[in-house]
Computed example of a mutant assay.
Amino acid sequence: MRLNPVFLLSATDAAHFPSESKTYSRPEVAFLGRSNVGKSSLINALLGSKEARVSSTPGRTRAINFFALHEASGGRQKAVPSLIFADLPGYGYAKISKSISAEWPKFIEPYLGERETLALCVCLVDTNIPPQPNDGQLITYLKQTQRPFVVVGTKADRLSNNVLGKSLAALKREHDIEEILPVSAKTGAGMAALWERIHGVME
């Protein structure tokens, strides 16, 4: 099934979120992770486009960016999207000013805690570095709030199979999770497995 992405809006306040009306209510998939973990690159690889802006400066994304994914049928694009992607701001980057970081709970916490259409959280962790405490805090939060989530290990192409296996084992042990999907936005490895999870929320 071909899904065509369309940028919807950037939200820095809960009032700016897309409508959850019954006529437009679609499942949303949120992408979360540390700054520079590769969120935008992963989204672009999934979509086969460059809708998500990739910056060389960590912490550049400071809003929740929403993308509507429309199914194409018979050469025409359906008006109502099948799915919505939400690209959340990265966390854990020291150079981001405290004033900006202080604003995030005003719209990120309401989104994760109260958003009824949020169907899946994709948590990105970097396979090239040791387990990070703030990744663990996010995973613990999602467990406590009973939000469905999948943990994805990014930049897997940079490691040999042996080293990658050890990295994934350490991440699973530290974050107390049973599964991590290794992916590479560069080579496309793991994208099919991740899409399978995402398609599951559309059924």
Rank of each mutant, 00 (worst) to 15 (best):
S19H: 07
R60L: 11
A63T: 10
P58C: 13
L118P: 03
L142Q: 01
D157E: 14
S160I: 01
S55L: 09
L138Y: 04
E178R: 02
N162K: 09
L112I: 14
V54M: 05
V125M: 07
S41I: 05
F7Q: 10
L83D: 03
F7E: 09
I100W: 01
L8F: 08
G153E: 05
G48D: 08
G136V: 06
G92F: 00
K106L: 12
G165S: 09
S99H: 10
N36C: 10
S167M: 11
E103V: 03
S10C: 09
E51Q: 14
E178W: 01
K155T: 02
E28F: 02
L168E: 05
P148S: 11
E203W: 04
R60K: 15
P58N: 13
T154Q: 13
G136H: 11
M1E: 09
I96C: 06
D157F: 02
Y141I: 02
L3Q: 00
K155P: 06
F7P: 02
G153N: 00
E114Q: 15
P182W: 03
S101D: 04
V201I: 12
P5D: 11
P148I: 12
F149R: 05
I84T: 06
S184F: 01
M1P: 03
T23Q: 13
V122L: 07
R53E: 13
V54A: 03
I100V: 14
T140H: 10
G188S: 12
G59L: 09
K172H: 01
L46W: 08
I108R: 05
N134E: 15
I64L: 09
V152K: 01
K22S: 13
K186G: 02
V150I: 15
E114A: 13
F67R: 01
R147I: 10
E178F: 03
K186P: 05
E178N: 12
Y141W: 15
K143T: 08
P105S: 11
S41T: 11
K95D: 11
Q146T: 10
E109Y: 10
K22L: 14
L138F: 11
F66R: 00
R34N: 03
E174D: 08
E28D: 13
V201Y: 06
G200A: 15
Q77D: 07
R34C: 04
L120K: 07
N134K: 12
Y93E: 04
H199E: 14
L194V: 06
I96P: 00
D13I: 09
A14K: 10
R197L: 13
P148F: 14
G90M: 02
I177K: 10
E20H: 00
E103P: 04
A189K: 15
G188W: 01
L83R: 03
V151D: 05
F149C: 10
N134C: 09
K172D: 08
P130F: 13
S41Q: 08
E114P: 06
T12K: 13
T23S: 14
R2N: 14
P5I: 07
L124G: 03
T57P: 04
R158Y: 03
C121E: 02
L142I: 05
T117P: 00
R60Y: 13
V163R: 08
R76C: 06
E178G: 13
S167H: 07
M1N: 12
V29C: 01
T187V: 10
Q146F: 11
V80T: 14
L83N: 02
M191L: 15
I139W: 03
F85K: 03
V29Y: 01
A192D: 15
